[in-house]
Design a binder for these strands. Sequence first.
DNA 1: CTACCAATGTGAACATTGTTCAATTTAACC
DNA 2: GGTTAAATTGAACAATGTTCACATTGGTAG
Lengths: 206, 206
Amino acid sequence: MNNVQEESPRDQKKNRRRVQILEIARGIIATKGLRSLKVRDVAEAAGCSVGSVYNEFGDFDGVILTVNRETVQALTARLRGVPAEDPVRQLYGLAETYLEFFAEHANLLRSLFEHRMEDDRPYPDDILQMVMDAFALMHPPLVRVLPDAEDVKIALLSRTLFSAVHGIISLGLEERMVAVPPQMLRQQVEQFIDTHLAGLGIQPQR
Amino acid sequence: MNNVQEESPRDQKKNRRRVQILEIARGIIATKGLRSLKVRDVAEAAGCSVGSVYNEFGDFDGVILTVNRETVQALTARLRGVPAEDPVRQLYGLAETYLEFFAEHANLLRSLFEHRMEDDRPYPDDILQMVMDAFALMHPPLVRVLPDAEDVKIALLSRTLFSAVHGIISLGLEERMVAVPPQMLRQQVEQFIDTHLAGLGIQPQR
DNA sequence: CTACCAATGTGAACATTGTTCAATTTAACC
DNA sequence: GGTTAAATTGAACAATGTTCACATTGGTAG
């Protein structure tokens, strides 16, 4: 007996189009920025009517939020791939991987962090939670490296450190500002972690 | 003889309205967020037509950019007011003042950092330069505290450190995310600087 | 003071883009 | 094949940025 709910042809078609819409929207955001994303462009590229986009996602924010959700998921997957043998190396690896991912998908990350909802509707909790969870990936290596610290302190430190790295990277990659050369930004991040780990009393190692 | 160009009544009126438009726009951004800023609302509140807004600022981005420009100026003024007697205290002061200013004017700061231009028009250079200059305000105290370091290194460090603080604060105040209580955020920032200064080999003092 | 003119202001009309929904089409089921 | 519920459509609507022909204004010369 098969517990898995069979997918009817109708649902197949529906899902195929759903992912198609998302891929098109993601492509536009990634290449031309969130502000260039238009319902009609997406519908036309997906070969359907604007109404179908609304049926599938409720409103246009729904499309953006779904793309953002998948962006955090992809980011988290990449961060989870960082080797965990050595906790100090892992911390460097998380920062460098975040830098790589941000550099590759700058507009998608900006969409994630900069998109504001219409009126005062709240940003979906699950996305926020996923971002916080991603930022908490520094927790385990920090615990190993600071075995005597309280867990609450480490949780806060994890968030602080990742937020700091996020600030350095997001402003460093801001091509609007005086662009920092990518290789230099990498050094900058590594240097930053060097110093901060030293301040925590940890022997920096690279 | 008077070198100063006299201001005709016509120009007075024009300027009065210009600042009025800006104050209204700033008020809307500050209270309801950039996404709630509408030309017609501004024009109506200023008691003029939408055309006049366009005559004065070219396009709607012009209004936003002018508000943003004034935001950086206000920020810079506040940061310059931080006492400079003791360089270490000055560094703490700059971070705490940035936190205060950000907390008071969160939506204005978001407008400054998150607004994207239509199409691919470049963000005005002078604003970017002003932001960089504000972030460079950590340079002088860092020079005093690290007298043996190269100037270029200090310049980079200044930008890194301020960017890190910016990341901690902007994410910490993101009420979308699990909001960090303000007083706790202050501790968080101070703790961060403690650790980082220690990593630089400087005796933290508060 | 009046006439003229250049600068400025106006708002209706237009352009773009998000949103809705009655009518149509599709496809699952008997 | 007929019935019906669901999905799809796209024209109409709504919200909002932008333009521009016309009206108004205020300075200035005669």
